[in-house]
């Protein structure tokens, strides 16, 4: 009777995979926009924290998750505006500003959280987005559990990725974004406003990063805690490169990361596994590294002017 438990085991892992991938995916798809336009934002971690905190505090005070999400997105857009001002208008080094954003995100959210919700025994949890069981489909064995019993923000990624692909590759807007990342001069001569396109792309990026952060507090755990993003911003950054600067690439890469993360958590729950748990913890990172090296035959270059301001 080994078969049944192993199918359940697989089912559990796959269901967890998508959930674990979701916050990373939002941030990564956003970063694809930003990087396609030639702006690298290593401050994703900080922006995700800002998104998480604003979404949480508004949702907590107002009682509305959607309002929280909205304000989280606005906070992300505002962060993007500031980021764009520094990197595009002032033409500061993008890595510098990104590093600053990581610190600012950690500092401001931690500080405000502490000031607003002083140490207290009052529970600060939210009623999070609940799983939506798709009628009929959710009762299919195995696939029902894996695919059709998630909350709305997880399903949202299914909309996000095709939409992002469509916008980037099938619209004039997307063409302009890619053009200002690859050949800004040429884009400029044909009348594309390079600065404006980059601003918009950066802000799309940070808005989606904020959604990824908000997901953690609105739809996963029910509470903001300091440092709740726990490195996912950096993983998202890796996922963008790994996914070859494409939304679908980001989708599969973050699922790959998610599956190994879910797997390591499951293996830790199994008796009689005598692998030190630290090796299991390292598994998702190691796997990403191995796959990156192994499947990188067809090299895809980063957007040509990534990191380079435009005069």
């Amino acid at each position: 009777m080994e078969l049944i438990p192993s199918i359940l085991f697989l089912q559990g892992i796959l269901a967890a995979t998508w959930r674990m991938a979701t916050p990373i995916l939002y941030a990564a798809v956003g970063e694809v926009f930003s990087e396609k336009a030639g702006v690298i934002n290593i401050g994703l971690e900080g922006v995700m924290l800002i998104g998480a905190f604003s979404a949480y505090s508004v949702a907590f005070e107002s009682g509305s998750l959607w309002l929280g999400l909205l304000v989280g997105i606005l906070a992300g857009i505002l962060s993007g505006l500031i980021f764009a001002f520094f990197t595009i208008t002032i033409k500061a080094n993008q890595i510098v500003v990104g590093a600053a954003f990581n610190m600012i995100g950690m500092g401001i959210t931690g500080f405000l959280y502490r000031s607003m919700y002083a140490v207290s025994a009052v529970p600060l949890g939210l009623k999070t987005f609940q799983s939506v069981e798709i009628p009929f489909l959710s009762s299919i064995p195995f696939f029902g559990e894996v695919l059709f019993k998630h909350n709305i923000m997880v399903y949202g990624t299914l909309l996000l990725v095709p939409l992002a692909t469509f916008v980037l590759y099938k619209t004039a807007f997307g063409l302009s974004i890619r053009a200002v990342g690859e050949h800004p001069k040429a884009a400029d001569t044909v009348g594309v406003n390079v600065v404006r396109m980059r601003y918009v792309s950066v802000m799309i990026g940070t808005a989606l990063a904020a959604v990824g952060g908000a997901f953690l507090v609105l739809a996963y755990a029910d509470q903001f805690v300091e440092g709740v993003v726990s490195g996912r911003g950096f993983i998202a950054l890796a996922v963008v490169v790994f996914g070859r600067w494409k939304p679908w690439g980001a989708f599969w890469s973050s699922l790959l990361f998610g599956i190994f993360y879910a797997l390591q958590l499951r293996i830790q729950t199994m008796p009689d596994v005598n692998i030190p748990y630290q090796f299991l913890q390292a598994l998702p990172y190691l796997a990403t590294l191995v796959v990156l090296v192994g499947f990188n035959k067809r090299r895809v270059q980063a957007p040509k002017t990534l990191g380079v301001p435009y005069k």
């Binding site: 900080g46 520094f86 002032i90 033409k91 500061a92 080094n93 510098v96 500003v97 590093a99 600053a100 954003f101 990581n102 610190m103 600012i104 995100g105 950690m106 500092g107 401001i108 931690g110 500080f111 502490r114 000031s115 300091e226 380079v308 301001p309 005069k311």
Partner: peptide, 25 residues
Amino acid sequence: PSVLVFLIQGLVVLSVVAFGVYSYV
């Protein structure tokens, strides 16, 4: 709360940039 120091560090970096005393490029 000492976590404020992260904010100040980040702001120092941004202010340096904003000074425009040098531009990387």
